[in-house]
Every structure is written in C-alpha cells, then in structure tokens.
Amino acid sequence: MSDESKRTTERIAELRPGYQADLAAGLDRFFEPRRTTCPWCGSERLTTRLRTTDLLQHKPGRFVLDRCEACAHTFQNPRLSAEGLEFYYRDFYDGLGEKKLGDTFGGRTAMYRGRAESMLPHDPGPKTWLDVGTGHGHFCAAAREVLPDTVFDGLDFTEGVELAAREGRVGHGYRGEFHELAADLAGRYDVVSMFHYLEHSTDPDRELRAARETVRPGGHLLIEVPDPESRWARLLGRWWLPWLQPQHLHFVPVANLRRRLTDLGFTVVSEQHREPHDPVDLLAAVWLSLDRLAPRDDAPWLPRRPGAARRVLRGALLVAGIPALVAGTLLDRFAIRPLSHRLGLSNAYRIVARRD
C-alpha cells in the first residue's frame, strides 16, 4: 500500500464514527417537508420526473426530482435541509474528495478558456471579474491567460476558495453565501460569472438578484447551467451525470432564465448550446452503471471497510468495463459532439446578459 493510500485509509477510519453517528440519528432530518407548489412559478401542477440514489459518493438516501407542468422547472422535492446539505457535501469538494476533484477540475483548462472567450464579443477588456461558485479557482487561473489585464476574484461557501487565494488563482477570495455578501460588493464588477452554480443554490432567484446588485450598470452576467431539456436527460434517465443527486437542487429551462433576467433589468445578448456542451454523457453513464454494480469502495459512511475479496472483485469488474468506457468516450467526443446541438443533445447552455 502506498503512503497516500495508507493516509486515506487512516483518514476514513477516523471519520467513520462521526458518519455512523449521523446515520444512526436517521435520514429524515436531512430533508425539508415536501413541496406541493413549484418554487419557480407557484403552480401546483407537479409530476415526478426522476427517482434515484447518490450515484457518486453512494451515501445513503433516496432523492426525487419533480417537474412543473406549467413552466417546466425541475427541482428536488423534498429538498435537502441545511443538515442534509452539510452531510451530502461533506468530503465531496473538500476533505476526502479535495484532491480528486481538484485534479479533475484543474485539468480542464481548454474548457475554462472557452468560457472566458465567450465574453470577448461583449466586453473584450473587463477590469474586474467575480466568479461565483469558484471552487478551487481553476477557471480564474485559466481565464487570466485570455484576459491578462483582468482582476479575477472568486466567491464560494467552501474552503476551496481560501485555497484558491493562497495558491494565487484568484485576486481575492470571498468565503460565504453570495446573497449575504452582495451588498458589500454592490456595483463593483464588470463581469459576474456563475458556472454550474445556480443548480446548487437553494433559491436561484435570490442568487440572480444578488448578481444584479454586484454587476455594475452596463456590466455583464455570465451563466452556465445543465440543460434539463437535453434529450440525454430523457434517454439516460438516472444515469445522466448532470442530475448529480443530491447536490443539484434546481434545473432551470433556458426560456425561464431568459424571462427572469429580463424582469431583473438585464438584456440577454448571447445564448449558446453547442459551445458549453461537455462530451461526457455516455462515458459517465457507463461509469456510473459499472460503479453501481461493483462492490463499494471504502468510505466512512460504510459501517466497516470492505474485505480484500470485495476489493479484488471491484477491481476486476471495473477492468472488465474498460472497453465500454473507451467506446463511450469515442462516441461522446467524435460521433456525438459535432452534432450535439443539432440533435438536441447539448447537456448545458450558456447565457450572457447585460445589466441595463
């Protein structure tokens, strides 16, 4: 066993008693009461769109996504409570998951550059930029290559933003809830970006109002979110990665977001579907399926460490699945990506809006 593996095993053993105490207290406290109306438009015309489990960390719990038949908004119902958010986020972006997620996000430089370049037709030289939900600040570091004269700050409620500041990826790192910090940041930024942030928020409308307060008049708001109207969402069902339960709480159709931004005094100047598409849908679906079939890897929310035989079986099943993973990757990148928008398979959309 390598030193890093040994440290991980020891850390899991240290965390196990705390997780087991949380689970012994029951899961009901992790959920709010079920809603009977849509949080976006207030309609009572709700239908169940998806039932699933935590397919990434495999923490216990079952999650439901409802769809509003009046406005097409999809949302988690019942929604995680504050205790639930803490439990299911714990050790995903920080703690045990920090290195894995940091390596994953850190290797996506081309995608980050593309996001920054989407602002160039509208403001080729913003002086100040705030990235909300910045995580470890990898977008800001890459975007600086596109806009070297722009000062990039980051905001996040996790300790990742403090790491981003220490590593010099952001000029200033704000830790906390955006809507609580917005008054102190009012009118300060030429650009505010929210890349795959709104779907995590408990109240997307509140976050949009905070963005309006933070963007200076004439400045821009740049938003990228999963597209719940993607055909992949229907074809792949629970295996569609952007559902990301239980972390993703809201899925806003593009028409809804455009109307809400207009109501808040923005003018939408760009809408993109092809450019923000991330070609990983089939690969991720295959991986999630294999990971679900294989015995669990060790984690502190398991009552005990899996035995050697189960660990060997897990490895063997994942190795056997390599041809399917390779096939999914090739189809995603070379067969589907060029046609993703035309076929309605884009898994995300991006909007640029100017504050009037």
Rank of each mutant, 00 (worst) to 15 (best):
H248K: 13
C140R: 02
D278L: 10
L147H: 09
E117F: 06
D3L: 15
T109Q: 13
P295N: 06
G102I: 13
G171Y: 06
R34P: 01
T37L: 09
D190Q: 08
D103I: 07
Y174P: 01
S340P: 02
T53G: 08
V254M: 11
R310K: 15
L330R: 03
G237Q: 00
L55V: 04
L236K: 03
A24M: 00
P17Q: 12
L345V: 02
L15S: 06
H58A: 14
D184R: 12
V312L: 10
T329L: 15
R342E: 04
G160S: 04
L293V: 10
P306W: 00
G135F: 00
G168K: 12
R206D: 09
R350D: 00
A143Y: 08
L302E: 10
L56P: 05
R274Y: 12
P39F: 06
C41D: 08
A13Y: 01
D184W: 06
W287R: 12
R274M: 09
L249Q: 02
T104G: 04
L317T: 01
I12V: 13
F92A: 04
F178Q: 10
R304D: 11
A335G: 07
P279E: 08
R314F: 05
A110K: 11
R258W: 06
E224L: 05
A186E: 15
R51H: 02
P78Y: 07
R90G: 05
E4T: 00
L261T: 01
A294G: 05
C41P: 12
L185A: 08
F266G: 03
A285M: 04
E213F: 05
V215L: 10
A82Q: 10
L208H: 13
R259P: 01
E44H: 08
F251E: 02
V312S: 04
V286M: 15
F157L: 06
R350V: 00
L222R: 04
W239Y: 15
W240T: 02
G125V: 02
A143P: 01
V326C: 09
R49M: 02
P295K: 09
L330P: 00
G133F: 06
D281V: 03
T37Q: 12
R355W: 01
P323L: 07
P121F: 02
L55Y: 01
P126Y: 14
A143T: 01
D153G: 06
L261F: 13
A116C: 10
I351R: 04
D28Y: 02
T109H: 14
L290C: 10
R311L: 05
T267K: 00
A141F: 03
P242A: 01
A316T: 08
L185E: 07
E207C: 09
R35F: 07
R292N: 14
G106F: 13
G97I: 04
K59L: 08
L288Q: 14
W40K: 04
E213N: 09
R209L: 12
R115F: 15
P226I: 05
E271H: 01
